[in-house]
Each structure stands twice: as structure tokens, then as C-alpha cells.
Design a protein around this nucleic acid. Structure first.
Lengths: 131, 131
DNA sequence: CTTGACCTTCCTGTTACTGGAAGGTCTATG
DNA sequence: CATAGACCTTCCAGTAACAGGAAGGTCAAG
């Protein structure tokens, strides 16, 4: 299967698939004309990568996870450790964003949004305690 | 005030302050020796930027907000529009992360994390409906 | 006059791609 | 057989918002 077919099967852009080969995540064969040929296993790995990326794992996490996926003698503890760290990172990010949301939401609510210059949002950013 | 002083006053790394000058967010004076000199207004603007960045605004949003901050004839509606869009983007990101968190949390819980290879996390990523 | 703490500019690297240029290949049709 | 259009290839540049580091100028103290 050519790259466009692989793209459609996996949902990954062709550009991304080439990039994944570039950084050594996959190693598809080449036809005589230089075109990449994707085996079932390649497609499987690409799908794995797409799903892992969709869960927010970094490329390096994906590399490790894919290695474990293909390692019959793995210990599931290794996988769990990676996933747990990632989960913690996500939870931290959520907390950060929620803090921002609360502040922003308050500011947006308090701003009249008319054609006059008075603006509690700018006042807050400028360091005044409040409008 | 030199750059290190400005850094300490604003909490921004000196590198970041130089970067902000580079992209035209601030225009500190230069002393005869080439050193940057930060006026009270510069420090004020840097603090504004630091706070806006801490709320997750992009640099380009910050540029627009700072412009409005310094524009006595602004309409607060412009500020509010920027803030509202940003708030929506944050809320969307939170939702995305929460979806990831739920999936990941389930997977982590279901994985034994021992020295055996069986792993529902990998099974899920690999596309099986469940271990 | 030297040492160490400042300051400067410039270049590279980061993350995970995306866009685009220049050019080779394949297939269908006239 | 020629050609058009849809593929494919590699390579280069750009994105966001800086961080790290090299090479070199400046300043205050001893």
C-alpha cells in the first residue's frame, strides 16, 4: 500500500507518516521506484502511534510505548509508569488551565465591552487590584 | 535599570525580555555603552506582558492587548473580544484534556503494572476493544 | 591591572509537524 | 507514442516562545 492509502487507513497525514519514518518510528519498505510500501504491520504501528498521539503522549513516549508493544518479554510495569507520568502531567495542565479560566472568566464578565476605554481586564493586567 | 534588575522586578528571565524587545513588544532605551535601560514605563509594560502570558494569551494577543492598554481612546469591546476568544480556546483545551484524562485513567487503573507482558494499555493503543 | 560579574549579539535547538518547491513515476486517454 | 493529471520523492523553510551557549565588550572592586 502506498502512502496515501496508509494515510487514509490511519487518519494520519502523509506528511506525518514521512516524518515518523524520518525520526525512526517506522521503517516501511521501498518499492523499486522508491515509493514507500506499507505492510500490515506498518499500518498497525501507525494506527498505534495515531492513537497514542491522540492521548497526548509525546513522540518520545510513543517511541518507548511502541518498543514495548513489540517486545514480547516486556513488563507491563514499564508501560504503566509511562502512562501514569503522562496522566499526572495532563492533570497538572488541566489544573493550570482551570486557574486561567476562572480568572479570565471573572475578567470577561466584569468588562462592559462597549465603546468606552474603561476596562477591568486591562486594569487587572496592568497590575491594579481591580477596576 | 539594567536587564537583570528588570528581570528581578518582573519575574521574566533576561532572555525573555531581550526576546520581547526583538519582536518589538518593548523598546527600552540604550545607555552609551549599549546596555539596555528600563524606564518605569518599560517595567510596567513588562509586568503587563508577564501577567498576560501567565493567563495564557499568545504573544500576538499580548501585542494587541498592550496596544490597547496604551491607547486612551480604545473601546473596551475590543479587549473583551480578545479575552473571550482566548477563554473559549482554553475551555476547549480543558475539555480535550479531560477526555484524555478519563481514557488514560481507566487504562492505568486496569493495568496490573507487574513484570508480565499482558497490558491493557498497549492492547487499547493497538486497537483491540479491550484486553 | 586583573578578576568576576555584568552586558551585548548571534547561532542553534526545542516539539511535532505543515507548506511548498523541484522533480521523478504511473496510468489512462487520444 | 505523447501527454495530462495524479501520484510519489527529497529537501528547505517556517511555526511558538523561548532556552542554552559561544564569543566578546564593560564595569566596579581590590
Amino acid at each position: 500500500m502506498n502512502i496515501q492509502g496508509a494515510s487514509e487507513k490511519t487518519g494520519l497525514p502523509a506528511k506525518t507518516i514521512r516524518y515518523y519514518e524520518d525520526i525512526g518510528l517506522i521503517q516501511p519498505d521501498r518499492a523499486a521506484n522508491g515509493y514507500r510500501h506499507f505492510s500490515t504491520r506498518d499500518l498497525h504501528n501507525l494506527t498505534f502511534l495515531a492513537r497514542a498521539r491522540a492521548l497526548g503522549f509525546t513522540i518520545e513516549d510513543c517511541r518507548a510505548l511502541l518498543g514495548l508493544y513489540e517486545d514480547e518479554s516486556r513488563a507491563s510495569a514499564e508501560v504503566k509508569t509511562i502512562a501514569q507520568k503522562h496522566l499526572q502531567a495532563i492533570e497538572e495542565k488541566i489544573r493550570d488551565l482551570q486557574t486561567m479560566r476562572e480568572t479570565l472568566s471573572d475578567l470577561v464578565t466584569s468588562c462592559h465591552g462597549d465603546n468606552r476605554p474603561d476596562c477591568p481586564i486591562l486594569s487587572d493586567l496592568g497590575g491594579s487590584s481591580r477596576d
